[in-house]
């Protein structure tokens, strides 16, 4: 770009704005504005007295809702639960998705599109139906899986107080592993064939090519999927909501998002719901940021594709690379 004449550059300076305009407008209207409203709401509390019938008073209360949320053992407990969930589920999900993507990318696989569709299919099943279905597999009494395992002397309780979180993890893996695989696959497709050819000439085998060429080159996509999995696990919501019908071991504040939902939709305490949602969003922001910093410090590229990653890395390290 630096080679372009100054005149043309000025003419072009309006171009990115035009390209960005539709997105920015919609984003401002449907993300920024409602977020702003939610944050604003979180600073108020509703004051009632007596039976609380009739109009209530809404008063500014600063960070009182945030303090109350952080004092609430059920809410902090739900935060710790999703943190544990995130720490276990994220690596499981990403490694599994990576294995699927690499296996499909191997030259020897026939009908890769067929497999890809099969792996991606669960993403197309609505969450309610997916959870209903897994519920059918989890509930003792009619579960074919419990029946089969019972035959070999195993009696798993998929919905027990200690196990139900991991049964939810399985549903999540089932729903989204194919989705993450697709992101990684799209990234693998952007790797120029010449690189493989060169490696093959050098006598590298499939495993070695995967380890030395593919994984480093799609590290941007890997980081991307990891960040989104971190966010997704922290926002865990639909699956526990549906499974609640099957087991009493999932409370109405089992996850922070579920807790905010309960506050907003059954208790109609919208301010508290907003405060909890903001805390959750901040936690996600901090964790994603920490993760990105860790990756950077480890010397990997930042979030971005193969090339963007390298550019970003160069920028951050001041060209030392």
């Amino acid at each position: 770009m630096s080679a372009a004449p100054a005149v043309r550059r000025r003419r072009r300076s309006r171009v990115p704005a035009l390209f960005l305009l539709p997105f920015c407008l919609l984003f401002a209207a449907f993300f920024v504005a409602p977020i702003g409203y939610a944050v604003y709401q979180s600073l108020f509390t509703t004051q009632r007295s007596g039976l609380g019938l009739g109009a209530a008073q809404t008063v500014f209360s600063g960070l009182a809702n945030y303090a109350a949320a952080l004092r609430d053992a059920a809410f902090t407990g739900s935060m710790l639960r999703v943190l544990l969930f995130m720490a276990v589920e994220t690596p499981v999900m990403i490694i599994f998705a990576l294995l699927l993507a690499l296996a499909l990318d191997a030259a020897s696989v026939r009908f890769p599109a067929l497999f890809r569709s099969a792996f991606f299919a669960p993403y197309g099943v609505p969450g309610v139906i997916a959870s209903l279905l897994w519920g059918f597999i989890y509930v003792p009494g009619i579960s074919p899986v419990v029946q089969v395992l019972g035959g070999v002397g195993l009696h798993p309780d998929f919905l027990g107080p200690q196990t139900v979180l991991w049964s939810i993890a399985n549903i999540l893996t089932w729903e989204f592993a194919g989705y993450n695989m697709l992101v990684l696959t799209a990234s693998l497709k952007a790797i120029p064939d010449e690189l493989y050819e060169a490696a093959q000439i050098d006598g590298a085998g499939g495993l070695r090519i995967a380890w030395r060429i593919k994984i480093p080159l799609i590290s941007g996509a890997l980081i991307l999927t990891t960040v989104f999995t971190i966010i997704g696990t922290l926002q865990l919501f639909a699956e526990p909501l549906v499974l609640r019908g099957l087991t009493a071991n999932i409370s109405d504040s089992y996850t922070p998002n579920l807790s905010a939902y309960t506050q907003a939709f059954t208790d109609s305490n919208y301010s508290m719901a907003a405060a909890e949602a903001v805390i959750l969003a901040l936690a996600a922001l901090v964790l994603s940021f920490v993760f990105l910093r860790l990756v950077q410090r480890a010397g990997g590229p930042g979030a971005g594709g193969p090339r963007a990653g390298r550019e970003a890395g160069r920028r951050r390290t001041g060209g030392r690379r």
Partner: peptide, 22 residues
């Protein structure tokens, strides 16, 4: 968002108009 870049300044202006319209 869209505030720091110069071309985006009129984006922000447009946003205000839009919100006012809404």
């Amino acid at each position: 968002m869209c505030i720091r870049s110069r071309p985006s300044r009129w984006l922000a202006g447009l946003m205000v108009v839009l919100l006012a319209a809404i």
